Amino acid sequence: MLTIESLTHLGMGRASDGQSLLPRVLPGEEVDVAQDGTVRIVTPSVNRVAPPCRHFKSCGGCAMQHATDAFVADWKQDIVVKAVQARGIDTVFRDIATSPSQSRRRAKLSGRRTKKGAIVGFHTRASDTLVQVPDCRLLTPALIDSFPALEALTVLACSRKGEIDLTVTEASLGPDVLVATDKELTPQLRVELAGLANQFGLSRLVWNDEPVVMINPPAQEFGGTGVVPPPGAFLQATKHGEATLLAAVEEITMNANRIVDLFAGCGTFTLPLAKRAEVHAVEGEVAMLDALDRGWREGHQLRRVTTETRDLFRRPLETDELRHFDTAVIDPPRAGAEAQIETLAASEIKTIAMVSCNPVTFARDARRLVDAGFDTPWMQVVDQFRWSPHVEIVASFTRK
């Protein structure tokens, strides 16, 4: 018998034998592990609950449905707190903000043909076995309603032995679907796909990198401004999470006159901030900035927005370029923004709003700013990826 001593940042239980990492267990539990690796809970934790989703045992999409919401919230907050404290940073943490169930508006699913039709869903943990999830507790009802369309797409796009990826995003006028497949897009297949899109009310259907049909522009709203993102473009996972992050960024930048938005994407922060300040949006993907620019030009009562396509990992904005701005917003990928943080630290910018999806690189970058003379009065953890190990962080940095 083993006792679970703690959880890793990925939600795996560290057992008392000093070597076992076990899934779906909780600290303090006593467990038996069979020779085939099956874990039996002997003494359950007081924080253990019945999973709210009937697919939890077979699906690999969630890791923490067996724990109370309060436990998961504390565990996620603690991951970030420990990462920050390990870098010697002292700050105040606001209460964690957790997105509700059935609020994930974008998902990457897999599809596989069967003798009777098709399966669309998620893989089981550490396996290529595909599980249907018609009652998924993560996805919005609109995404669940798109499953028949995705199954029909799988029949057309997939060979009998292959598998395809389906990225589906909720849009107001119908699902926005990107298909990743090795199958050739023939003229006849184009006709069939167009018919399928009309039948199921898809707003846009893209085959690999090639648009097949757009019945309605799949616009997303950023602060009331409509933007049509390029297929598969980054989007905050939930509207709740996006609103929470935006509220924090707006609070941090409330006194700004000229803002530089680094890793701006399609304008999640740029366009709402442009209601009261001039914004320069910098992003490495041309298509995202084109979408942002079109949204701004068609928007109402927005101040000046300029865009710049630039690889901020290889060519960060230098201090002489940053002197035109009093405030920076930065939301880098998981790798963080070490090079750009260096130039921000050396610049004269007074205020920085930093958003991150990786506690380790966030803490590293935050330490550099603190060393350069910034205070960090508060941080907040945002849980858009409910029941998973993933977290978002937003933090305020003000130069002393």
Score class of each variant (00 low, 15 high):
Thr3Ile: 15
Ile4Pro: 11
Leu7Phe: 06
Leu7Gly: 12
Thr8Met: 03
Gly13His: 12
Arg14Cys: 13
Leu21Asp: 09
Leu21Asn: 12
Leu26Met: 09
Pro27Ala: 06
Gly28Pro: 01
Glu29Ile: 04
Ala34Ile: 15
Gly37Met: 06
Val39Arg: 12
Ile41Leu: 08
Pro44Tyr: 04
Val46Arg: 12
Asn47Ala: 14
Arg48Tyr: 09
Val49Arg: 15
Ala50Ser: 13
Pro51Gln: 15
Pro52Asn: 07
Lys57Glu: 13
Lys57Leu: 14
Met64Glu: 10
Thr68Ala: 06
Phe71Gln: 05
Val72Asp: 11
Val72Arg: 07
Asp74Gly: 06
Gln77Glu: 09
Ile79Pro: 01
Val80Phe: 00
Val84Pro: 02
Ile96Ser: 04
Arg104Trp: 03
Arg106Lys: 13
Gly117Pro: 05
Ala118Tyr: 11
Ala118Val: 08
Val120Ala: 04
Gly121Asp: 05
Phe122Ser: 05
Arg125Lys: 12
Ala126Gly: 02
Ala126Thr: 11
Val131Ala: 09
Gln132Arg: 09
Val133Gln: 05
Asp135Asn: 12
Arg137Val: 08
Leu139Met: 11
Leu143Val: 06
Leu156Ser: 02
Ala157Cys: 09
Ser159His: 11
Lys161Phe: 09
Thr167Lys: 06
Thr167Val: 13
Ser172Tyr: 02
Asp176Met: 07
Val177Ser: 12
Lys183Leu: 07
Glu184Asp: 14
Leu185Ala: 09
Thr186Cys: 13
Gly195Lys: 13
Gln199Lys: 15
Gly201His: 04
Leu202His: 01
Ser203Lys: 06
Ser203Cys: 07
Glu210Arg: 10
Asn216Thr: 10
Glu221Pro: 01
Val228Tyr: 02
Pro229Ser: 07
Pro229Ile: 13
Gln236Thr: 14
Glu242Ile: 03
Glu242Trp: 03
Glu242Phe: 08
Ala243Ile: 13
Leu246Cys: 03
Leu246Pro: 00
Leu246Val: 09
Ala247Asp: 13
Thr253Lys: 01
Thr253Cys: 08
Asn255Arg: 15
Leu262Asp: 08
Cys266His: 05
Thr270Ser: 14
Leu271Gln: 04
Val282Pro: 04
Glu283Gln: 02
Gly284Cys: 05
Gly284Ile: 07
Glu285Lys: 04
Met288Lys: 08
Ala291Gly: 02
Leu292Gly: 01
Gly295Ile: 03
Gly299Ala: 07
Gln301Ala: 14
Glu308Ser: 15
Leu312Gly: 15
Pro316Gly: 10
Leu317Ala: 10
Glu318Arg: 15
His324Asn: 13
Phe325Arg: 09
Ala328Ile: 07
Asp331Gly: 03
Pro332Phe: 05
Pro332Gly: 10
Pro333Thr: 10
Ala335Gly: 11
Gly336Leu: 05
Ala339Gln: 11
Gln340Ala: 11
Glu342Pro: 04
Glu342Tyr: 00
Thr343Gly: 08
Ala345His: 00
Glu348Lys: 10
Ile349Gly: 03
Val360Leu: 05
Val360Cys: 00
Val360Tyr: 14
Arg364Met: 07
Arg368Cys: 10
Asp371Leu: 08
Asp371Ile: 06
Phe374Ser: 00
Asp375His: 10
Pro377Ser: 09
Met379Cys: 13
Met379Thr: 07
Phe385Gln: 12
Phe385Met: 11
His390Thr: 11
His390Phe: 03
